[in-house]
Each structure stands twice: as structure tokens, then as C-alpha cells.
Nucleic acid binder design. Structure first.
Lengths: 110, 110
DNA sequence: TATTTGCGTAACCGAATGATTACATATATA
DNA sequence: TATATATGTAATCATTCGGTTACGCAAATA
């Protein structure tokens, strides 16, 4: 059963990285691929998946295809998570504490 | 390569439904399973995955195990999507228009 | 026109996923 | 104590996933 929705699209870390990359500026397929270790066809597949659920649109320009993101396709996922925000914000203290934890962890990984 | 992070946890629709269910109140494993068509062991597996990435904690009570959600584990996913919010909010109009589209679609599916 | 470049896609592969059934174990109950 | 209940887990299976290499084709270029 093929699920191809936004949640599945952002489940893969490479696809999340592609989204981050394209949020800066549109890029050709090869330009996208040049940022990753994996092969170009692998990137092509990821782009196809992202395209199929609308996150990325493709514009042909000569022999290149430029990829841009459609940020509004992220809204359903945002809204789904957002409905639990009041639950984790119940204690603001613990929320801020958790944010600090995350920041500490990010610092460690640098 | 086993990825067991929050994005992968919420990628499966059954697991999202489990989270929704448990956001109402803690439930025993069987109570959770009774809300779904699939077998109890299948639910057990989903709960295990949710537990492994911290979204669900389990409290033993007699021969039952009560499941509760830990909403703050959703924060990293929320923050990741949230960083693109300004992109889709660039034009408030189109944002609201998109919300309307979603509502229309939800009405259709009812 | 011949060649290079950008890209999609098919064929293939190993690993992960999501389900099932069958069984084991601990706890409650008759 | 014998039985029923709640649950975890192992074995198995079909399907999906994410990667690779090989190839094809259209567009740019020498």
C-alpha cells in the first residue's frame, strides 16, 4: 500500500535536507544532487516523491529542471502537530527547559 | 538502516491515530487495539515504535499496561516545520485560501 | 553533425515495514 | 489450583524503501 502524503515525504532525512536546501533558492536537479553523497538518480527519486505530494514543483528550463518548494503543502502536517501544542505548553517551564535541552544537544553535535 | 525518530513515528497513519486517541486519555493496550481493524500484535508493534522514540510511555498496572503520550516529543518536528511558516505565510491571503481548501476537502470526505 | 550535458527511468538488490498467526508469560479470577 | 485475560514476542510473509548501475533521450555545444 503506497502512502504518499506529506508525513511520509518528510519522514526521510534526505528529503528534509532537500526541502531545507530549496527553501533558500530554486535549484536544478544536478545542483541539488551535488549537495549529497548519494547518486543523482537517488536524488531524482526523492524529488519525484516530493513532487508527487506537491512539496516540490519542477520548471523546465532548457535541458535543466529547476526545483522549487511549495511551502503551503507543509501546512497540514503543521496543523496536525499544532493541535497538540497546548498539551506540551501546559507547563511553559518544561517547554522552555526542553528547548534548552535541544539547544544543548545541537551544540554537542557541532 | 533503522531510523527511529519522531518524523518516522508520525509517518504512519495508524500511529498518528494512536497519538490522537491517547491525547484524550491514557488507555490500556487492548483498549487502543479495540479502536482499529488490525490485530492486537500489530498495535503492540506500533506502540513499541512510539515508545522507542519517547512519544508514548507505558505504565504497568496489574496485568494491563497503560499508554500515555508525551506531547513534548513532538516539539522537534513542530519546530522543523515551523521554520517554513514564514514562507507559506508570505501571502496571508493564500494561506487562508489554503485553509479554506482544506476545510472544503474535509467536508467532502465526511 | 558529432559530442557533451542534464535528467528520467528501468532493472536490480538488500534491508525495513507492516501485517499475520502461533506461542509464552504474568496476573487476575472462578 | 485451574482457567481466563492482558500482553509481549518470535516466525513468517508480501510489499515498500532507498540505494545502485546501466541506459535512453532531449537540449546545448563544439
Amino acid at each position: 500500500m503506497i502512502r504518499r502524503d506529506i508525513f511520509q515525504a518528510i519522514a526521510d532525512p534526505v528529503r528534509r535536507d532537500i526541502i531545507e536546501l530549496l527553501s533558500q533558492e530554486p535549484l536544478s536537479v544536478n545542483s541539488v544532487a551535488s549537495h549529497f553523497e548519494i547518486s543523482r538518480p537517488a536524488i531524482s527519486k526523492h524529488l519525484k516523491i516530493l513532487n508527487e505530494c506537491g512539496v516540490v514543483t519542477l520548471r523546465k528550463e532548457g535541458r535543466e529542471r529547476y526545483c522549487m518548494i511549495e511551502p503551503k503543502t507543509l501546512i497540514p502536517a503543521f496543523l496536525w502537530i499544532d493541535q497538540y501544542r497546548n498539551l506540551w505548553e501546559d507547563r511553559i517551564d518544561s517547554f522552555e527547559q526542553y528547548l534548552n535541552q535541544i539547544q544543548q544537544k545541537n551544540k554537542k553535535n557541532e
